[in-house]
Nucleic acid binder design. Sequence first.
DNA 1: TGACATTAGATCGTGCACGATATAAATCTC
DNA 2: GAGATTTATATCGTGCACGATCTAATGTCA
Lengths: 152, 152
Amino acid sequence: MTTNDPIGPTPQLKLDAQLCFALYSTMHGVAKVYRRLLRDLDLTYPQYLVLLVLWEKDEINVSEICQRLQLETTTLTPLLKRLEGRGLIRRTRSAEDERQVIVTLTAEGRALRATAAGIPDCIAAAAALPREDLADLRGRLTRLRDNLAAAG
Amino acid sequence: MTTNDPIGPTPQLKLDAQLCFALYSTMHGVAKVYRRLLRDLDLTYPQYLVLLVLWEKDEINVSEICQRLQLETTTLTPLLKRLEGRGLIRRTRSAEDERQVIVTLTAEGRALRATAAGIPDCIAAAAALPREDLADLRGRLTRLRDNLAAAG
DNA sequence: TGACATTAGATCGTGCACGATATAAATCTC
DNA sequence: GAGATTTATATCGTGCACGATCTAATGTCA
């Protein structure tokens, strides 16, 4: 028989006590809800995030999208190619600086915004918490994220 | 020239206003800190989570780990094979029910617990927030996760 | 007992996510 | 203005994460 606790309690190593696991599993729960909502649009959640960025500001280069989403170019390059393949965006080399790739929404990509307009309300409904609680949670998470970035 | 806002404000579609993006990017920030801490142990964060589960309760089957971590067997099967390849766990078919695979820590897998004992404090330090704030945040996230699961 | 359903894991295919590295264009330095 | 450095993006390899599907073992019930 193996003992389950060979070196003492170490309560911080308990899964349910860990903030990070709460974050991890809650994110998966959110992703699951989004998958259902985005299935109609045939989008993944990261693809949806890229469109959110472009709906706010069109004709930006890849690294600006990277900065906004805190993702590496190695993640975004294939994702953007898929969005281009779907006809939602165009990727063109900048004339002034040939190193940059400018990402532009197509008419279809812009049109998708109207279809997506209802998504935040669906998420809020699934969250089933008062709007101010959600805003408060967002603020706390953002502060944590900034602290981690400063520490790392 | 393309307009940036062809269908009106729709402020809920703003990236920075979205709780879900805060969750998503904060999780990536956390993962980044863990990657640095776990590099010495040659573990990924999901692998570390599996070990947390086993350090709490050894000799459990695959589906129990799935339930604890809220992951699919299709995610865990290859991950467990990698941990087995590293010599940290063993996978054996149950004698009573041949469908089940029982996961057991090896001596090396148990020993790793001592090495990992300092990680939670490192994370707390990087988070740079009072312990009660972190506990509060964990509670709020768990509530949100449960609501989403109930809705989905 | 034999047909059917259920359960536990595994396999396959697709899409993130990132570290290490490559390449080409722009910029800096002398 | 030639060579070194930096910058923007792409390529490659590995590891999650999940939906769809498969297989084998178990359970059910006529």
